[in-house]
Simulated scan of single mutants.
Amino acid sequence: MTSTKIGSAARHEARLLWAADPGLFALLEAGRHTGPIARVPRLGWVVTDPVLARRVLNDHAGFGMNGEGGVGHLWTQLFGDGMARFFGGPGHAEVRTRARDLFTEGAARTLVERSQGPSHAALARRLAAGETVDVADAARVLVGRMVADLLGLPAGRDDAAHRDVFAAGERLARLAMGTAASTELDPAVIDRARAIVDEITAGVPHAYRTAGPDTLLGRCREMGLGVPLSRGLATLLVIAGTETGASGTVRTVALLHDTGEQRALLDDPSLMDNAVREGLRVSTPAPVIGRHVSRDATVAGRRLRAGDRILLLTYLATGGAGPFDVRRAYVPETRQLWFGAGRHLCLGAAVARTQVARMLTTLHSGGRPYRIVSRRAARRVLVPAYAELRVRLA
């Protein structure tokens, strides 16, 4: 891998970050010069070191998701105190325990193949016929199908319906932009967000009543969580399962191409796990994770006070290991920080990895490398992503 290719891949990633949110880009650039932990005016504490970030995420007594700075604060404003109790109480552990079997490696492979398999087969046929395909559009539809299947929403919807749900999720996520300085939402923003939630979860009440026990809404019904909280969890899954899933998948496709590493993967398919891990590490679709400082704490010699906010710049924490490299050995310091850590570690981590691997397998199904014909960054989005990434077989 040449320095020219490394530089090209880095520039494309930088353009994605800038197009998504110039403020995020500026924060990450500033974070490169702050040291492992620093206090930034108006924002609070920022952490760029992966070991410190994991320590914060594992200290659930000292750093919470509820309260100013935590993502739970945003969701509570939309769905009420029941959501706050979910993020900070025993209900969260119960949901994870009761739903864990839906997210194992084996279950993830079954879910992805069941919900996405026919679409991948059609995509492979188009590529083999010499067509140019938009991987970004395909990923949006694919993750929409997967989330609908997992929730137990009606099957058989066409691609346009899944694009609409994805677009609604983007609109909802976009309302959270600008919350780096405060997670307190304006009442008008809350009203707009609730209208979008109604659109996204229109089918949830029916699915809650009828979904089988092998779906997330079916498990919610069995636990007696009620429709309001289940709507909140469904919305959370739509955002987490589609926005970040599509971003990580498509950006891995681009990184594999831009670094010239796809030939190594074609020659040695056993490198697939490495390629997936590296793609998620370098792209880190959730580039910042916020927490509320629940009680006084000391981190790397710095004294944090209860009520402070702390931003974990995961994009920098994971990216410090170096550029995308399919031969890179497992990095213990970063582990899978791009999925979070502790009891709030992304429950769908196995599903995300499986989706990325399934896309790379489809693109390489003809035994030839693909080349990127054109690309366009998504603008003003919470999760940096490609609006378009058109590829064809070389």
Results as ranks from 00 to 15, higher is better:
2 T>S: 15
2 T>Q: 08
2 T>W: 03
2 T>D: 15
4 T>P: 00
6 I>H: 14
7 G>W: 00
7 G>M: 04
10 A>N: 06
11 R>Q: 14
12 H>Q: 13
13 E>D: 12
17 L>V: 13
19 A>C: 10
20 A>Y: 05
21 D>P: 01
25 F>C: 10
29 E>D: 14
31 G>P: 02
33 H>F: 11
35 G>I: 04
36 P>D: 07
38 A>D: 10
41 P>K: 08
43 L>A: 12
46 V>W: 05
50 P>S: 06
55 R>I: 02
58 N>M: 13
61 A>K: 06
63 F>W: 08
66 N>T: 14
66 N>C: 09
68 E>G: 14
73 H>R: 13
78 L>Y: 09
81 D>Q: 13
83 M>K: 07
86 F>I: 07
86 F>C: 10
89 G>M: 10
92 H>E: 09
97 T>G: 02
100 R>F: 05
101 D>C: 01
103 F>M: 11
103 F>P: 00
105 E>V: 13
105 E>D: 09
111 L>F: 03
111 L>V: 07
112 V>C: 11
114 R>M: 04
117 G>I: 02
119 S>P: 00
121 A>F: 00
128 A>N: 09
132 T>I: 06
134 D>L: 08
139 A>Y: 03
139 A>P: 03
140 R>F: 07
142 L>K: 02
144 G>N: 04
144 G>D: 03
145 R>V: 01
146 M>E: 07
147 V>G: 03
148 A>H: 14
152 G>V: 08
152 G>T: 09
156 G>W: 06
156 G>H: 10
157 R>W: 03
157 R>M: 05
158 D>H: 08
159 D>C: 01
162 H>L: 08
166 F>R: 11
167 A>D: 15
168 A>S: 15
172 L>W: 10
174 R>C: 10
175 L>F: 06
176 A>V: 03
178 G>W: 02
179 T>P: 02
180 A>Y: 11
182 S>P: 07
183 T>A: 15
186 D>F: 05
187 P>A: 04
187 P>Q: 01
189 V>F: 01
196 I>V: 15
200 I>T: 06
204 V>L: 08
210 T>W: 00
211 A>L: 00
212 G>Q: 09
213 P>F: 10
214 D>T: 14
218 G>R: 11
219 R>C: 14
223 M>H: 11
225 L>V: 09
226 G>V: 01
232 G>L: 06
238 V>D: 13
240 A>Y: 01
240 A>V: 11
244 T>E: 13
244 T>C: 05
244 T>G: 08
252 T>L: 02
256 L>E: 06
257 H>C: 07
258 D>R: 13
260 G>E: 04
264 A>K: 09
269 P>W: 01
274 N>L: 02
280 L>N: 01
282 V>T: 04
286 A>E: 05
295 R>W: 00
298 T>W: 00
307 G>N: 06
311 L>C: 02
314 T>A: 07
317 A>W: 00
318 T>H: 00
321 A>Q: 02
325 D>F: 08
326 V>S: 12
334 T>A: 02
336 Q>Y: 10
343 R>N: 13
346 C>F: 06
351 V>F: 07
353 R>F: 04
358 R>T: 10
359 M>W: 12
365 S>W: 01
365 S>I: 04
367 G>P: 06
369 P>M: 10
371 R>F: 03
375 R>L: 12
377 A>E: 15
380 R>Q: 15
386 Y>H: 15
386 Y>N: 12
387 A>E: 15
390 R>N: 12
390 R>G: 11
392 R>L: 10
